[in-house]
Amino acid sequence: MDLLDSLAFRAAAGGAETTLAELVELRGIPPNRLLSGIGEVVDYFSSLGLELVPEPGTGELSTPRVLRRPTSAEERRTRAQVALEAGESQGVEFKESLYADMRRLRKTGVLAENADLPGESLKTIAAFMNGKGGELLIGVSDKHGISDGIERDFQAKSWDADKWQLQWEMLVDNRFLTPGGVRRFLEYDMLSISGKPIFHVSVRATPRPTFVKRRKDTSFEFFVRRGPSSVSLSLTEFAEHYGVSNSVG
């Protein structure tokens, strides 16, 4: 098994980080054949049922990417259904909305957005990435089940589903401290379950620490999963989590 096949094997087993520069080196592509050579490698991976994220046409040779086996829409829907039935756990989290303050709506009848809520979804993604991965369902309440939370987001922001997802992608692109971005570790769909829109995010674990801002004007934090919760670690806890010694000499 050559190095390129070894990379493909790891990718099929659970995803593998790489760069175009690494692929060029593994394949021995000469400088005068970069574009066609990279295209041949991508076609080879495609023949094995693998995809490179982000696509070769974006970023630089050094941009971090993930080679992975994509899951079908039906597989992702089944995964969301299983997570919904299983309930919240270390690998499953429910969020009722992205922006709409559903608690306030129930208490007062007033629909308003809460600027802190997007950060709650983002910290869950970060915690899953720093652990073993997981499933995030937005539009589901841990107490009330499938909710109209996303529809309330549409109402509060005057958005449709496409605008909602675009804003979600912008949050993901702008709030994480991860070279190359985090979308390569995510698969996501807007589903319809029981007649309600549910946004499903399937998160893969990352090989290195991932940090996120809960709000754009706050500092980056490191989150991990503890049971069904996402917990921010202090610097000392972070060092302990990764087994970093503070001894000198």
Rank of each mutant, 00 (worst) to 15 (best):
A86C: 05
S97V: 10
Q155L: 15
L98K: 00
G91R: 00
P64M: 11
S121Q: 10
M129L: 09
E74K: 15
A161D: 07
D153I: 00
T63E: 02
H144E: 14
E151G: 10
S72V: 07
E120R: 15
Q90K: 00
A115G: 13
L122G: 10
V92P: 02
R69E: 15
K132G: 12
K143H: 12
V82G: 03
I146T: 02
K163H: 14
T63Y: 03
A126K: 03
R65A: 01
K123S: 08
S72Q: 07
T78L: 14
G119Y: 00
T108D: 03
E120G: 14
A112V: 15
G59N: 04
N114G: 08
Q81L: 15
D153S: 03
F128S: 09
M102E: 09
L137D: 01
S141F: 05
R79H: 07
R152K: 15
S72F: 04
A115H: 12
Q155I: 12
G131C: 08
L84S: 04
R68P: 01
S147W: 01
G131S: 13
R103Q: 14
K95D: 01
A112G: 00
Y99R: 09
K107G: 12
A115K: 15
K157F: 05
A127W: 06
D153T: 13
R106N: 13
R103L: 12
V66Y: 02
R104Q: 09
A100N: 12
G145L: 06
M102Y: 06
L98C: 03
G145D: 13
M129P: 02
W159V: 04
E60C: 05
V82S: 07
A112W: 06
D160H: 02
V82M: 11
S97D: 06
R104I: 06
G87C: 01
V110N: 12
L136P: 01
S158Y: 09
T71L: 14
R104S: 14
E85T: 14
I146H: 03
M129C: 01
R69P: 04
S158Q: 11
N114P: 06
R104G: 15
E74R: 15
L105W: 03
E93G: 00
S89E: 05
V110H: 11
G134T: 12
K157A: 01
L67C: 04
A83D: 07
I138S: 00
T108K: 13
A115L: 09
S62E: 14
E151F: 01
G131Y: 08
I146S: 05
H144F: 12
M102I: 14
G91D: 15
E151C: 04
D148M: 10
A83N: 10
L122E: 09
I138R: 11
S147F: 05
Q155K: 12
A86W: 00
I146A: 07
F94P: 08
A73C: 04
D153W: 05
A100H: 01
F128V: 10
A161E: 02
S147V: 05
D116Y: 05
L117C: 07
R106I: 04
G91E: 13
Q81M: 12
A83L: 05
T124D: 15
V66I: 13
E85M: 10
E74F: 04
R65K: 09
R77K: 11
T71I: 11
P118C: 07
G133F: 08
D142P: 05
G131P: 00
L105M: 06
A83R: 04
R76A: 09
P64T: 13
Y99P: 07
E85F: 09
I138H: 00
D142Q: 01
